[in-house]
């Protein structure tokens, strides 16, 4: 479980997060949604200790952020940041292999290698395994980075807008794979999504942020309503129910 207790954060003069408290239970897909600048990415990067906490506390299971061992945390929680170095000449296999680094610290065992090969197969990266990252398309590269976070073998997987630059097929297949990780392996996926419809289709729970505060939180059918869209995004988009899921007409 990830427990966020009254976290506030400023960058310069700007107040990014104000008194955010959340409990993210184990298992399932949790989507963070909200307009640009709502603080979604900041919240995610604070959970993943990419930035130091300024105010409040975050616990990941029994580990207190800022006081726990970085390596131990890297075996419990993985984050795929929004901006990753795209011009690297690492091969896909090497990149995915670095996902095992928190486990082997530079000395991969046969078991580590086997896991890497399995991840390459699972994310359809087999034919690309020896290609360098800079020669891949945006979608292929994204898949390679997701595979790297996957082999890190953590209970919690945090992804910051992984659907950027992905076409419809790639986005759907990535979401389906994340769904499967949650359902079959009991992993907890926390994902920042821009497109509310992906959140309603794949997430169990949607946390909506606006102006650095949590303004809605719950199952998709409860949170995604025309009233919420009006209040949070300031746009009057009709919401229809299709197959039990709310769908925003754009």
């Amino acid at each position: 479980m990830i427990e966020i207790q009254s976290v506030s954060h400023r960058i310069g003069q700007a107040q990014i997060l104000t008194d955010v408290s959340l409990r993210l239970e184990r298992g399932g897909v949790i989507a963070l949604a909200g307009p640009n600048g709502a603080g979604k990415s900041t919240l995610l990067s604070l959970i993943a200790r990419l930035q130091p906490l300024q105010q409040g506390q975050i616990r990941v299971d029994d580990m207190q952020l800022g006081q726990c061992d970085d390596r131990a945390l890297a075996r419990k929680l993985a984050i795929l940041p929004q901006q990753v170095n795209a011009s690297s000449r690492l091969t896909v296999r090497d990149l995915v292999g670095f996902g095992r680094y928190p486990h082997h610290r530079g000395r991969p065992t046969a078991g580590d290698r086997a896991r890497v090969e399995a991840a390459l197969a699972q994310f359809d990266l087999g034919p690309l395994a020896d290609r360098q990252l800079e020669t891949l398309s945006g979608g292929q590269r994204q898949r390679a980075f997701v595979a790297m976070s996957y082999v890190q073998d953590t209970d919690f997987l945090l992804l910051d807008e992984p659907l950027n630059n992905l076409d419809l097929a790639a986005a759907r297949s990535l979401m389906a794979q994340l769904r499967q990780l949650a359902d079959d392996q009991g992993r907890t996926v926390v994902i920042v999504l821009h497109d509310i419809n992906y959140a309603t289709a794949y997430a169990d729970r949607i946390v909506v942020l606006k102006g650095g505060r949590v303004v809605a939180d719950g199952a998709p059918a409860e949170t995604v309503t025309a009233a919420m869209l009006e209040q949070v995004f300031g746009t009057a988009a009709p919401v229809h129910s299709v197959g039990g899921r709310p769908v925003v007409l754009v």
């Binding site: 200790r49 970085d70 890297a74 940041p81 901006q83 170095n85 670095f98 996902g99 976070s149």
Partner: peptide, 13 residues
């Protein structure tokens, strides 16, 4: 070389 975020994520000091 993959950046600060990826380094921190992998538990690198």
């Amino acid at each position: 070389g993959l950046g600060e975020a990826v380094s921190l994520n992998l538990g690198l000091n």
